[in-house]
Amino acid sequence: MLRLNALDIRKGEFRLSGTADIKAGARVAVIGPSGAGKSTLLEAIAGFQPLDSGKILWRSDDLTARAPGKRPIAMLFQDGNLFPHLTVAQNAGLGINPNRKLTPDEMKTVEVAISRVGLSGMEGRKPAELSGGQQSRAALARVLVQQRDLLLLDEPFAALGPALKAEMLDLVKEIVAERNITLLMVSHDPDDARRITDEVLLIAEGKLHPPAPTADTLDNPPAALREYLGT
């Protein structure tokens, strides 16, 4: 279980606080109005945004004071998920160990991951030689070899067209199911949330609400969400 315990984050006027427990293996959409702090919450969990108070626990480990790279977390950002001067295979290989040369076995793992996301034969290409969808796939190949328990998506597919985005979300859904990864994704689009998540975490007016089933919440939105959804 991922436990967000009495979190409190302040940045000038901005404030976000609350408690939420997320079951291991759950797929959770983080929804809420613009500026509510969806990205900030993910950055806090990943370790890029310091907490003013509160704790972040995974299983029984306290992650609060750990450096981003030492947390059991893989994260995809809105942009900058690949190093533009490295090939697909090199980028994915960074997920195993960025600080040393990979062993032949590890290279094999990378190759398998690349073929799993459907990029076989493109190992030697650089990101600029790939389409937007292929870049997303390369980033997912890295997530696969990282073998972390949690995957955080901060709208990495926002720049893709609707069909491609749906395709990527389906791939993510398959991957997290195969590897039993717990997923948290920021979402602006209720359809995305319905497509792959089973729970939603609502952030509104500086408060973090506990997770609730996706379909119920979106069908009968609470007041804080209704205005945002426009229903």
């Binding site: 370790g47 890029f48 790279g69 900058g80 998920n81 190093f83 960025p98 600080n99």
Partner: peptide
């Protein structure tokens, strides 16, 4: 552009 990704990967 790259610091977050590098830190997330535990790159030294």
């Amino acid at each position: 552009h790259n610091a977050r990704l590098a830190l997330a990967l535990d790159m030294n």
